[in-house]
Design a binder for these strands. Structure first.
Lengths: 229, 229, 229, 229
DNA sequence: TATGAATGAGCATTCATTCAT
DNA sequence: CATGAATGAATGCTCATTCAT
């Protein structure tokens, strides 16, 4: 039997619990505002045990942040291939759903709030978050340009435009106002408008594509009807 | 003469000094990380005096934040009227120069980082920052629509697009990476591209306007030549 | 009025209290064994106040040690001049009374016990304690040599012999056994014997001097009759 | 064969390792400054195992101290018999070499530093160290008195004088200044002078003996030529 | 028996806040 | 009114000691 020793197993499990607890506590109160007692309590163990896993508050913070970052790598789906409009729409919803999740927003606030104290954390997230995402979008956009469905010169700028048109406004708002989550309808409005502008600017057949977009948005304005208040 | 009593005068002056000191200290280390000793020292007075002006750390923080917000109200210039393209370009630079200033970014990080602890601060800034700005842009865009120079249905979305296309990418990067300020050339690239997309999507004479934009960007790619590395 | 400001006065007084408290606490339990709460309590103030006066435990320890050292500088009397035997006898008692005081022994134990952690403290005491004392004795012995009352080649060795003959045994015992203070009678025995050997070895008239010594020791075997148990 | 069971053997071995580790750790940082982790690590076993051998830090300390004391019993050689001067000289070097060894000094500092916390330790060492040593010297001195080579009344005082004249000064210095070991030459100076004084005071043929001493010290000023810097 | 893992209690240090002058 | 001085209440971190395996 290649049984993983129970000890080892246990240790890994506990480390995960600590990192989860740390995420919660640091997210709620920031680095300085958080205290190790809370983390220990939240993780269900004592402070000395906590210190056996991470040698200092700072080390715990960094470890947690980098762990979260690694977790984020696989978050974004690769675009499907059912036609530009459908693809972009699907991508827009996927991305919005992820980026506007309360926990993602809390994490983003934490990073931004502490980036002056921990500059390397900001950079680390830039690399796996925006940069990786962007390169995913860029690959897709390049493909569509080769198929003459889109036209542009600077792929990076086009990708950033896509992101900015769809999410800049709702995400900025969400960062500043944690208690007001955007509704599905609001999101739909941003996505609809953002994609329309993007298509007008970058599609080789803007009129057709915008028409298709309008049709799709009418049909399927949102995915989760329940919270469409 | 209804001379303001010297006492009164003095008090106001001192209060300003405290608020400036608070901005500096809180910006550098966040709310929890800052301590009242530093604020008092930075303001050049003793802690008890500081407490005479603000009854608690929390009160000082709120007061400082709201004061900064008020100061921000007059920050953005009203658009001039020399033609849409020139107007938008002038606005874009104005806005970029303001929003990407290191102190503005620090303040933004502070707000975002503390918004969960002080939700009203986030809302307050939303009102005078984005909202006021937006309504300024909206007024301008509405005017241009009346003159048939632009066309759109939803003014708010159009205004948000303008903002997002120009500044979403560089500002997001700047928030996450405090040590890497964007150069003038990078800014010019974002502005040029953002306005081109905006004009393509919203102008009644996209081809002409984009051509003019290209010409203007060539002529005057930046304002401060010295740091155009 | 050249009134010293009460504040200043107070501060000095309090600092003295802290140093006294520190001496007590550190002497009792050593550096690591002592805690700042005890010092604060013993000094009659709160821990933060204590920290306003000394920035760390280590700083307090060093300051206290150096203060004690300075206090020690004036401790040893200069020898009088009533004849070698009388002089040496007087010096012997003076010195024994000082060096064997319980607080002096505690301090010595503290220095010796912590000298590996704070090497500079050991050196500092060596300079003002033994070294200064020795040079005082040496001056005196040199004088007596000039008057042909004593003879020797190496003044330093002679001085060290004087010290060693009188105090080495009782002080070593006292260092190792804090609960057993030497009685006056025991001290008298050490002094009598030590001086006798010293005179035999160094006096130009050993027989006479030893006889005088014996007479003096008979007459006045001790000074403080009360604890002559 | 009444073979000792391997278990038993092992246990004894381990106990020795622990005691050696404890000596090292306690010597370096004192009782309070030392921690059980370091002892366990130094002994190459785990803390619980350590606790199986010694039920508490205090117990370990005491056991180690008493063990060291027992080890010390056989340290001092019995004086040979080649004539008083030669005997004393040989004894002086033997004793100096032992007492001034860095590990012996560290141990002495430890005892002195902790004697207030563990008074019985001080007494225990007094018994086997000074007391046993002293009674050895006393036996020898008594012998020489019987052979009319030395004369004195109080054997104990004579023995203490011998010790004090030779080692009081260098040992006291060494206790206070751990980083400055006395050189061979310095030791020779102390020994030469101490014995000369001793012989002048106690020999029945002082002139002869001092002459012999001078001759011996010239011939053989030290034993280990290499570090005679 | 030996050990990885755990913890209650303690300790140096800091900080928001308040007096006394 | 302004300030030097003071403090109760944390907070990060450590350590002697004990389980559970």
């Amino acid at each position: 039997m290649t049984a993983i020793p129970k000890r080892q197993q246990n240790r890994i499990e506990r480390e995960k619990r600590i990192l989860r607890a740390a995420l919660k506590v640091f997210s709620e109160t920031g680095y300085s505002g958080a205290n190790m007692d809370s983390v220990a309590f939240e993780a269900g163990l004592s402070k000395p045990t906590l210190y056996q896993y991470f040698e200092s508050k700072e080390a715990l913070f960094s470890a947690m942040m980098l762990d979260e970052r690694d977790r984020m790598i696989d978050v974004f789906q690769h675009p499907s291939h059912e036609g530009v409009v459908r693809d972009l729409l699907s991508f827009a919803w996927d991305y919005a759903d992820t980026v506007l999740r309360p926990d993602m927003l809390s994490l983003a606030r934490l990073i931004i709030g502490e980036v002056q104290r921990f500059p390397e954390i900001g950079r680390a997230y830039q690399e796996v978050g925006p940069d990786r995402l962007l390169s995913g979008i860029m690959t897709y956009l390049d493909g569509q340009r080769r198929h003459s469905r889109l036209e542009f010169e600077d792929t990076e700028l086009a990708a950033e435009d896509l992101w900015g048109l769809i999410l800049s406004a709702p995400r900025t708002k969400a960062l500043y106002m944690p208690d007001r989550q955007p509704t599905r309808a609001e999101l739909a409005r941003y996505i609809h408008n953002g994609l329309r502008v993007f298509l007008k600017a970058y599609s080789t057949q803007p009129a057709n594509d915008v028409a298709e977009l309008d049709r799709l948005m009418d049909t399927q304005p949102s995915r989760q009807v329940e919270d469409d208040d």
